[in-house]
């Protein structure tokens, strides 16, 4: 049971953290609350479906193409829409909601509101400490860990990462170091959307594709980000694993309540907002 919980936590926590890091980075660097974040995750899933079914691409190739396409689309949406209204936070949130809805509707128009699927990369499962794990999950976990390490490397060991961290902490002062804040915002959005696409690409072979699939991860991701603190990378990762752990504990100790996974996310969201609105490691935005 403990092993089950640990494995479940690691796999789900890693997926949540990739989603949450992207969301958090964009908030930290550009102060954009991107509701459409998980819509890009949904789009990546549809891209893979279209890539494998309509264009006959190899799944791996389709995944790569999907991530690139979604990233470009994310950058374009930012440049063409969000950047122009970014100074108005409320308008930005509404615009990102609208963007997500538009993507959803376009997918319904193109693919219908049916449940679709794409094949897994490698079929079957393996047994780890007596727990069955699909190869796809193993891949997911490995990819997520690689991604997390690359993020860490990018942020901690490169100049761009230094600029992203600095901008996330204090946009004004970052300017004084010669960091072009709007350029860094653009790069960060690219990375963030790319991550969302990646998460979609890697997770989707084990579940269903449908145009509303962005909603439930959105809530979990927001809860993770609020728990960890908006804008904090460390907080996003820790928050993601806390969320994964909570969900796993619920499923294993309270089977009747496994639907509560969703409400747990909401409950955490509300409690954190009331007790500690800045989250565990949130950046302070009072200075702005």
């Amino acid at each position: 049971m403990v092993v089950d919980i640990i494995i479940s936590t690691l796999i789900n926590g890693s997926i949540y953290s990739i989603l949450a890091i992207g969301f958090s980075l964009v908030f930290g660097v550009a102060r954009i609350i991107n509701i459409a974040h998980t819509a890009f995750y949904m789009l990546a899933a549809f891209c893979i479906y279209a890539g494998t079914n309509s264009f006959g691409l190899h799944p791996v190739l389709a995944m790569g193409a999907a991530i690139i396409f979604v990233t470009i689309l994310g950058l374009a949406s930012y440049k063409l829409i969000i950047e122009k209204i970014r100074v108005h936070p409320a308008a930005t949130i509404i615009a990102t909601i609208a963007l997500a809805m538009i993507f959803q509707e376009i997918m319904i128009l193109n693919f219908g509101a049916e449940f679709l699927s794409v094949p897994v990369l490698v079929e079957g499962f393996t047994v780890v400490f007596g727990v069955k794990i699909t190869y796809q999950q193993v891949f997911t976990f490995i990819f997520m860990v690689i991604l997390l390490i690359s993020v860490w490397f990018l942020l901690m060991k490169t100049k761009l990462g230094l600029a992203i961290r600095a901008t996330a902490q204090d946009r004004e002062t970052a300017n004084l170091m010669g960091m072009n804040e709007s350029m860094i915002a653009l790069v960060t959005i690219g990375i963030s959307v790319g991550f969302a696409g990646f998460a979609g690409a890697i997770v989707i072979p084990l579940t269903v594709i449908h145009p509303h699939m962005w909603l439930s991860p959105l809530i979990i991701m927001m809860a993770v980000v609020v728990l960890g603190g908006l804008g904090s990378i460390k907080g996003s990762i820790i928050g993601a694993f806390i969320m994964g752990l909570t969900e796993a504990i619920i499923v294993f100790l309270l089977p009747m309540g496994s639907f509560l996974k969703g409400s747990v996310a909401l409950t955490i969201l509300i409690i954190v907002l009331i007790i500690k609105p800045e989250g565990l490691f949130g950046v302070s935005i009072e200075g702005e």
């Binding site: 230094l162 600029a163 961290r165 902490q169 002062t173 970052a174 170091m177 960091m179 904090s232 950046v283």
Partner: peptide, 19 residues
Amino acid sequence: RKPFREMTVLDNLLAGAFL
């Protein structure tokens, strides 16, 4: 002084050397 509070002293100084 507005240091980047979550970053180390060295990272702060390197941020200054960004250009």
